[in-house]
Computed example of a mutant assay.
Amino acid sequence: MTSTPLLPFESVSFAGRASGPRLIVTGAVHGNETCGTQGIRRVLEEIRSGALAIERGVVTFVPVCNPLAYAKKDRIGDRNLNRNLAPTPNPKDFEDHVANWLCPLLASHEALLDLHSTRGKTEGFALVGPQDNQGLIEPFKHSKAERDMAKHLGVKRFVEGWLDTYARGVARRRANAAANPLAADAIYGVGTTEYMRSVGGYAMTLECGQHDAPESPEVAYQAIRNTLAFLGHVNGPPPAEVKTYEALRLHEVIDRDHAEDKFSRAWASFDALAPGDLIAIRNDGTEIRAPKHGRILFPDVGAKPGHEWFYLAETIGEI
């Protein structure tokens, strides 16, 4: 665990003179994903200079959610902040302290735009929540508002089905002695957006592109500006709604069981899969093949045994 828990947390809020929604925009939940931080700081400069005016509602910006991970230029400080996110009366690691500060801040807002990036090269895409439901895994009642917001971000690919797919993985992990004990708990799938939905808001994760791609900060910046205009925080015409897009639904998560489990090739998110395509080979020689047409998402060559290794997604008609 870290011995430097005194790093400060920073949020910056602006309130318009007219009533409106309460939006929070977050960056650097993972410390090596800095495009959101750059996009947020660019918008902050515009607001402070008077080039952009918040006319309605409240907007809060968190340029760096995890200052320890950010200082390390690494994905994590002590652990993954975007898993098992919840307040705790007995914080044990740095991310617990972040959660005790960040969770009440999220709960005081109505909408969240959480800005991330990916290891592999890909276009920007948004992860949206479930359809409205009263189920046990992720009950929700703001699906239309969330998906309307997603269609105005400026990206053309959307993915749903995170938490219920993760929950199915949890059931399998519980029977696997090699699994990470935390990862065998359904709450371990809860990150910023899932927590926001659990306290009555709506939210989305925007993956802005590859970590170091020069266009990723621009994707983050445009998404912030588009969201401010769409929700009415700033004056001016709303951004155009994307009409042609790819919609996908996660349907399976595959964990890495052994350090010698290997991918069959260097996969990248959204690579196409056909039925029977060889994806990976286990240490014991077991082959993992695609069950149907779809795409692979979030392949992680550095995944540790007992952690998620990659996801499978299928095309759906619309979000």
Rank of each mutant, 00 (worst) to 15 (best):
T227V: 13
D212A: 15
G209V: 09
A223M: 04
A177R: 12
G169K: 01
P238M: 09
R225I: 15
A171Q: 10
L182N: 13
V128E: 09
N176P: 03
H233C: 10
L163V: 00
I254H: 02
Q210G: 12
A126I: 08
V242E: 09
P214M: 10
G201H: 08
R168T: 12
P181F: 07
E215N: 11
H142L: 15
G189D: 01
F140W: 09
A145E: 15
W162T: 07
D255K: 00
H251G: 00
A184S: 12
K151L: 14
A186S: 06
P130I: 07
G189W: 00
G189V: 00
T193M: 02
V128Q: 06
G209F: 08
G169E: 02
R147G: 05
P239R: 07
Y245W: 10
G236L: 07
A213M: 05
R225L: 15
L136V: 15
A213R: 03
L182W: 10
R168E: 14
D185Q: 11
P239W: 09
A175I: 03
T205K: 04
N180L: 07
Q222V: 07
I254N: 00
V242H: 05
F125Q: 08
V155Y: 03
G200E: 10
D132E: 13
A220D: 10
F140I: 10
L206H: 10
K156M: 06
R173M: 02
I224H: 04
P237D: 14
G191P: 07
Y221A: 11
G232T: 10
Y188I: 00
E215I: 11
Y195A: 05
A223H: 05
S198I: 05
P130G: 11
D164T: 15
F125R: 06
A179C: 10
A177V: 13
E207K: 08
A177G: 02
V190E: 01
R174K: 15
R249S: 13
K151A: 08
R147S: 06
V219C: 11
W162I: 04
K151M: 10
D164K: 06
S143T: 13
G200N: 11
L248T: 02
F125I: 13
M196C: 09
T193R: 00
L182E: 14
A223N: 07
V199A: 11
I224Y: 06
S143E: 14
F140R: 07
